[in-house]
Simulated scan of single mutants.
Amino acid sequence: MAKDNFTDLEQLLAEFEASDLTELHVRHGDLEIFLSKDADAAGLGGGPVQVSTAKAPVKAGKAANPSAATASAAPAVEIPEGAVIVRAPYLGTFYRSPKPGAPSYVEIGQDVSDETEMCLVEVMKLFTAVRAGCSGKVAAILVDDGAMVSADQPLFAVMPA
C-alpha cells in the first residue's frame, strides 16, 4: 500500500473512531473495508470475521525478527524446521487472550486445528481473531502479549500434524 493510501486509511479509521457511527462499509475499486464498534458484528460476508494466515515454511535455526521498527516481538526464538508460521493480518496490538485476566487462547505444546483462534489483533477498537490455518501443535509464541505488531509479522510457529 502506498504511503499516501496508508495515511488516508489511518485518517479514515481515526475519523470513524471519533464519530457516532457504529458501522461503516466502504468500497473503492478492489478495496472493501467494513468497520464496526460492535465486537459481535458480522464481517463483509455476513458471518464472523475470519482472517486467513500466510503459511510459510521457515528453515531450522532461523529466528523470528520483524523488520518493521514499530513492531515489537518477544526475544528471538528458534523456529523448528518445517513449522508453519501464523502471521499478523495487519498493523495492530497483539492480544493472547480474549480479555484481560482471561486464559490465553493457546499455549506452547497445545494441539490446534485450522479454525483454532490463536490470538486477537486490534486496531482502532476493531478486534480480529487470528486462526491457526493448519492442524498441528503450537511450537513457539513469537510476540509478547500487548505488543504492537506489523502486517505479516510472525506471531506463532505451528508444527503441522
Rank of each mutant, 00 (worst) to 15 (best):
D4L: 15
D4M: 10
N5G: 03
L9N: 01
E10W: 09
Q11P: 00
L13I: 06
A14V: 07
A14E: 12
E15W: 03
F16M: 10
F16E: 02
A18E: 01
A18M: 01
A18Q: 07
A18N: 02
D20C: 05
L21A: 14
T22L: 05
T22D: 09
E23P: 00
L24C: 13
R27D: 02
G29F: 08
D30V: 10
D30F: 10
E32R: 10
E32D: 09
F34I: 01
F34Q: 03
L35W: 05
K37T: 00
D38V: 00
A39V: 00
A39I: 00
D40G: 07
G45K: 02
P48K: 10
V51C: 12
T53A: 15
T53R: 10
K55Q: 12
K55S: 13
P57S: 12
V58N: 01
G61W: 08
K62E: 13
A64N: 12
P66V: 06
S67A: 13
A68Q: 09
T70Y: 13
T70V: 05
A71L: 02
A71Q: 02
S72V: 11
S72I: 07
P75F: 10
V77H: 14
E78R: 13
I79H: 05
V84Q: 11
R87V: 02
A88E: 02
P89V: 06
Y90S: 11
L91V: 14
T93S: 12
F94R: 08
Y95W: 12
Y95H: 14
S97W: 00
P98W: 02
K99Q: 08
K99F: 04
P100R: 05
P100S: 09
A102Q: 01
P103K: 13
S104I: 04
Q110C: 09
T116Y: 05
E117Y: 02
V121L: 02
E122I: 09
E122A: 14
K125T: 00
L126D: 00
L126W: 03
F127E: 11
A129D: 05
V130F: 10
G133E: 03
G133I: 06
G133H: 05
G133D: 03
V138P: 01
A139S: 15
D145Y: 11
G146N: 07
G146M: 04
A147E: 07
M148G: 03
V149P: 01
S150N: 08
S150V: 02
D152E: 12
P154G: 13
L155W: 08
M159G: 04
M159I: 14
P160Y: 14
A161R: 10
